[in-house]
Amino acid sequence: MIKYIEKETFLHRVNPISKLVVLFTFAYSLFFFNSWLVQILALLLVLFLYTISGIGVSKIEGKKFFIVFSLTLFIINILFIREGQILLNYSIVRITMDGIEFAIFSVTRFLAIVFSSFLFVMTTEPNKLAYSLMQSGLPYRYGFTLVVALRFVPTFQFETGNVRNAQAARGLSVDKMSVKTLYKMARYTFIPLIRSTMQYIDTLTVSMEGRCFGIYEKRTYIEEVNYEKKDLAILSMSLIYIIGFFYQRFGQNFL
């Protein structure tokens, strides 16, 4: 599973908010470049960051998924885009330069966004992210929903395992595959989990209200999230980048 890896690197030390802004800016701007070359450069840049951050490309999981997904996306695009310089024309199959360019274009864009997201996750402590969001203006009552949601992730992972064992113990299995079985699997997994969830909701509400959650509009924090010079620099660079972008895109209508 992709999750936070504790290390002392530059990327780890950057304030989570700055990092999130950069990630958003990066992903967002990829949708404005219509050149496949830029997308490849972006993907290479992300992979390069893996190397210098000391995380290493090998930490990317689910390689099988990405290979299958990318190949399929690639093939579909090649087969269905029929305009442009023709490279191969054999019965109904026609491979064109445009097709290949567009195929590379959409695959690399997808991978660049996902891999940069993974890098963010592996270098950012979720707890710190949530607390930073709240200290940067997100109302804390909403911010804590993220903390609570993250808090229960391991609990529910464990419980999902339990439920699936209990299903097996009573003879429910996917040996016979059919749409009906799948419906049953979903139903018999969701309902028991929701049932135990209801108890958590009641207990947690009492526990949080019992400790004055929501009494004032603001609250204090024991750990202050610091913005260093480099964070401010990163934030302003992202901002300039985005403004420049908008100007280019909408002000002058050409790229």
């Binding site: 707890n127 808090r151 609250r219 204090t220 024991i222």
Partner: peptide
């Protein structure tokens, strides 16, 4: 409700 022991003990006090 929080992810770390320290934050949990501080939770109510921070709310106050």
């Amino acid at each position: 409700c929080t992810l770390r022991v320290k934050n949990e003990v501080a939770f109510g006090l921070e709310n106050l």
